[in-house]
Design a protein around this nucleic acid. Structure first.
Length: 424
DNA sequence: TCTGGGGTCCTAGGACCC
DNA sequence: TCTGGGGTCCTAGGACCC
């Protein structure tokens, strides 16, 4: 039996690196990428970190740094990041038969059945190729479990001396490394558990690896127990190779400015129904559960209101108007005039595969229905001519409520009209 | 004037049934 | 009227991830 071994490849400050890849003048400068609505900072370059800025900081609170330190802030450009991610993953897929795309900027590689003499060399060649082809810096962590590969990745990222690649397997300083990792930085241990563990004197990964298993299961459920085992080199988390269809799909966005009118909230809600059901159709699923929520801005000193309501469709569907109608009814039921709303959201749930749609004697079934033909047509046109080419009028035309993206970079790789041009 | 969005899993407890 | 065990299903809440 061959021994398990995993690599975790993680892009360094992924969103920032995507932007830098096409705007090299940003290299070496403090750069931040903002969340939707240009709200807070979700990705920072090391230079921006060095100024004391933290992930999650509201953009308006660092205004005073911008001119002084030549800080560059950018709206997030998901079309660009999604495309760059696909290119990274394509390269990685050449390095292993088993690739698990864990997030937009991270992937696990199973190394179990590979014939490789030198794992550090293997990691270095991955890193070099992605750097050369995409201008994207990555870190590679290697270990006998996914959790330890994560730890190794952290070491690779933190200590420049390792050249971005670290293998923790059978490392002579294993104990020191685990003692160096704070308990809250372990994969699977979040902010809350970190506080609780600290109260019991468990401060770092080494401490956690030594705890009593029964006790840790009581404290942190089976999930925490798995983490402890993984720190001890016992692999509990397998590769997840299938892309599982989503069990729930949420579409929500903060407004560009406060919204009071029901009519505008209805538009936004209808728009989010379009977004959510597109994802639903793309994974060939149907849904029957729908929930709508709305909320005021909790950061402002104003009357606050938040509420939600849910209902079910008679039969599972992926037809936009079915959801717009249901969502409209729900929104009206929870809407209260006189508040300044910050956000509405739509969540669809009770998702099943198209093929598993139950027969119904009394109601038409979506997949045998002209509703499916209409959706196929809408999706195809939007695929060819771009998102939003064909849309329901209920989602509004002007969309005055839409979020802000004032600092957006061009879609260099996903729109012919926005290709990077190189001139002398 | 300004503070993101989209997911998953686990467990406890209540409702309901036999 | 009220007692008991055991099972399933559903939901809400809490934790985590990026």
């Amino acid at each position: 039996m061959s021994r398990k071994r995993y690599a975790l490849v993680d892009c360094n400050q992924f969103y920032v690196s995507c932007e830098r890849s096409f705007q090299p003048h940003l290299c070496g400068k403090p750069v931040g990428v903002l969340s939707n609505n240009d709200g807070c900072i979700v990705a920072l370059s090391p230079e921006l970190k060095a100024l004391g800025v933290k992930r999650g900081a509201p953009a308006f609170k660092i205004k005073h740094l911008i001119d002084r330190y030549d800080v560059h802030l950018l709206s997030s450009n998901y079309a660009l990041y999604g495309d760059m991610s696909a290119r990274v993953m394509k390269i990685l897929s050449d390095y292993t038969p088993e690739l698990e795309i864990y997030s937009i900027d991270e992937a696990f590689l199973s190394l179990e059945d590979l014939q490789v003499d030198n794992w550090l060399e293997y990691g270095r060649s991955i890193r070099a190729q992605i750097q050369q082809w995409l201008g994207m810096p990555v870190s590679v962590g290697i270990g006998p479990t996914k959790t330890l590969a994560k730890v190794a990745n952290r070491v690779a990222k933190k200590f420049a001396g390792y050249g971005g690649v670290f293998d923790i397997t059978d490392h002579p300083r294993f104990e020191d490394i685990l003692k160096w990792v704070e308990v809250g930085d372990i994969w699977g241990v979040g902010y809350r558990y970190a506080i609780r563990l600290n109260e019991h004197g468990i401060m770092n990964a080494w401490d956690l690896s030594r705890v009593n298993q029964k006790w840790i299961q009581q404290q942190m459920t089976i999930v925490g127990l798995r983490t402890v085992k993984e720190l001890n080199g016992i692999s509990c988390l397998d590769m997840e190779l299938d892309i599982m269809p989503k069990k729930q799909i949420i579409s929500s966005r903060s407004f560009g400015h406060p919204v009071e009118k029901l009519s505008e909230l209805l538009e936004a809600t209808a728009d989010y129904c379009q977004v959510a059901t597109l994802k639903l159709r793309n994974q060939r699923s149907l849904a029957s559960g729908i929930m709508v929520y709305l909320t005021t801005n909790r950061f402002r000193d104003e009357p606050q209101y938040a509420n939600y309501a849910s209902s079910r469709l008679i039969t599972p569907s992926a037809y936009i108007p079915d959801f717009i109608q249901a969502a409209g009814t729900l929104l009206r039921s929870i809407y209260r005039p006189g508040y300044k709303y910050k956000k509405v959201g739509v969540m669809i749930s009770d998702i099943i595969a198209e093929k598993q749609a139950p027969l119904d004697f009394f109601e038409p079934v979506y997949i045998d229905d002209e509703r499916k033909l209409v959706m196929d047509c809408v999706d195809r046109l939007n695929n060819i001519w771009g998102p939003g080419t064909l849309a329901y009028a209920a989602a509004g035309i002007n969309k005055s409520w839409q979020m802000k993206r004032e600092l957006l970079s061009p879609n260099y790789t996903s729109d012919w009209r926005q290709l990077l041009s190189v001139s002398g």
